[in-house]
Nucleic acid binder design. Structure first.
Lengths: 185, 185
DNA sequence: CCTTCTAAGTTTAGTGCTAAAGTCTTCGAG
DNA sequence: CTCGAAGACTTTAGCACTAAACTTAGAAGG
């Protein structure tokens, strides 16, 4: 193959190239908005890959780590029902049944019927699970500190505050204010 | 059931409650870092749900929309191989084979062998696909504008710039600088 | 009581993904 | 020229998820 133009082979666009390309194809695009949204999306994808690798080193999956986090967040004695777990993680109850199966088999949680209301099930963090969570948390917080390394304290504060404002807008969208953000849950 | 303490039923923690709970369980946590990271994660989850609903109204899935976006980003004549698509979307080539099957059946793309190199396949956007992309893009950019409604132009600029700096840190991590961010691709 | 209703989980069928093995084309070396 | 190796998909087996049907326990009414 000796073409004069040696097939360059397409390359993954940088963020700036991406925004420029979208503007070519779609005039009405606000580049400032697109920068925020695209950077958010890319950042999150990269971070999730990184988290996955970190917790994999501890022998758990990202999915399992999410469950551990949710149980710890509920506070001692670290108990929640499968339905509640499913709701908080955005899964169906059916999926949580199987996740809890796997995690119980690995000893990260126990699964028992509630004695006071025998239709309910209680998923409870074991000591092993709590230790795994702690190890994962240490790795995650090191990673996060590293991620924000280039930002000053002031910048971190500003970034956090701006993100929280976006989050508020998306969480309790006020439809009466003409907002287009309908219920998201 | 007339217990004195009417089983409150656990509730989904707000962002502030979440950070406070983590601090109780894990002393070394920097709340400022955690605010940024947790807000990022929540925001992204909500946004993905919202995007999914929007494009579902157009009769396509979030997965299909991602493929349409990638093809449009590649510029005219909107052609890429399944392998390249898979790499950019973080999927295996096998998954892309099936996605392209479905999208070709719906008329969003065509799939043909490259005549110059018959081991290669070319996925090309159809006019129908391009139109779908445009419709989805209009909905998405309206949604994004709405999301950023509460931020001034200056604030949008600052937010974009800060996010881009984080993205740079995570994309070309400089391991020689003592960074802990190892290769993420 | 005995039925009906509702809530909480589980089970089943089907979809979309990954990992690994397989196919087919092209390239390079003897 | 022929064989072997590499590259670019596709196929297969298995897993995790969703939607919808099913099971069972407790609550409400007649």
């Amino acid at each position: 193959m000796s073409e004069s133009t040696e097939e360059p082979g397409p390359h993954e666009p940088s963020l700036d190239e991406q925004i420029a390309a979208y503007q070519r194809e779609f005039r009405d695009l606000d580049p400032q908005v697109e920068q925020v949204v695209s950077a958010l999306g890319r950042l999150n994808r990269r971070m999730n890959v990184a988290y996955g690798r970190q917790v994999a080193a501890l022998g758990i999956s990202n999915a399992e780590w999410e469950v551990l986090k949710t149980l710890v967040l509920s506070g001692a004695p670290y108990r929640l029902g499968p339905g509640e777990l499913a709701k908080r993680l955005g899964l169906t109850p059916a999926a949580m049944t199987h996740r809890v199966d796997r995690m119980a088999a690995e000893g990260l949680v126990t699964r028992d019927r509630d004695e006071n209301n025998r239709v309910r099930v209680i998923v409870e963090l074991t000591d092993v699970g709590r230790t795994k969570w702690l190890e994962a948390m240490r790795m995650a917080s090191d990673f996060e500190e590293d991620l924000l390394q280039d930002l000053s304290g002031d910048e971190r504060g500003v970034l956090g505050e701006l993100l929280v404002r976006l989050l508020r807008r998306v969480e309790h969208a006020q439809p009466d204010a003409g907002g287009r953000l309908t219920d998201l849950d």
